[in-house]
Design a protein around this nucleic acid. Structure first.
Lengths: 153, 153
DNA sequence: CTCAGGTGAGAGTATATACACGTTTTGTCG
DNA sequence: CGACAAAACGTGTATATACTCTCACCTGAG
């Protein structure tokens, strides 16, 4: 009784069906594939397009701020920024506070976002057609609540 | 007019709000953090617990089969399997068809799943409390449809 | 002013993910 | 039977992710 019994397959099946983590990650892989494919022709990954978009909105913005806004680990973000900096899409400059690095879009970065938008729109439209607009809206809302919930845990 | 104009911030804001990819990935990061933290005391990542669970259900199973079942790239899966093989949690043996590698849980793998279950349950329960059971059920259902939709695109 | 503690960022390490390409084995058809 | 297609898997390379540790810089208490 006190000895931990081998879990049976039925129990694991139920975990697989109900686990929020597994299922969100699985969906993340499937959806990322759609957007990565769509954006390939401009040489951007979905993550990079997302990052450029966030910078477009928040610029000038520090690394830590951007990390909080995108729910990304600061060190992860730093490495992702380095990649798009090497492509010449952003600049990172120290301001008055020498610890900070302020991130800006370059002209090329602006152009990349502009080119990405139409490709993004096509992917988003095709996916929305498959899923239905109402369901997409509901899903986005639930995902937003999920992020809040996860941060409170 | 034909010249691509700089997209304005309002448009990008709308993209950030509505993009299924950004928002699923963001949720994936937030949720993974919860489950990774919960499982840390047994030395498993959420991904690894998921993988062991899938093997528990499907064993013996080939790499390609497991990849299809988990919506993971075959080469990604191969590398993830190598990590839990090194920990002694699974075995990979060739069968009659020498191209195939059949994956099995070891005794230690069974034990790891058993230990992981209670930790998983705690994380899942805390998250469900924050989000509400009905919303979790709806979200899981919508995510499942999303995966199907993404695969049809 | 000084320094103790806090803050912003990078480096080291490890895992997760996937595309392009190559290798071995199997199956199939003339 | 032999050549060629198909299947299963691994390797090389690149990006995404995050934890731990370290360092530089800033700021406020005394």
């Amino acid at each position: 009784m006190s000895r931990k019994a081998k879990p049976d397959v039925a129990q694991i099946l139920e975990i697989g069906r109900t686990c929020v983590c597994f299922n969100v990650r699985k969906a993340s892989r499937a959806v990322t594939h759609v957007y990565d494919s769509a954006l390939r022709s401009v040489g951007l990954r979905a993550t990079q397009f997302a990052l450029l978009s966030a910078i477009k909105i928040l610029q000038p913005v520090t690394v830590t701020h951007l990390a909080q806004a995108t729910i990304t680990d600061r060190t992860t973000l730093g490495r992702n920024l380095k990649l798009i900096e090497k492509k010449g899409l952003i600049r990172m400059l120290s301001g008055e506070d020498l610890r900070e690095r302020n991130v800006y879009l370059t002209e090329r970065g602006e152009g990349a976002v502009a080119k990405g938008i139409s490709l993004w729109e096509e992917a988003q439209t095709r996916l929305t057609e498959q899923l239905g607009e109402e369901r997409v809206e509901r899903l986005l809302n639930d995902l937003s609540l999920l992020v809040e919930a996860a941060r409170r845990v």
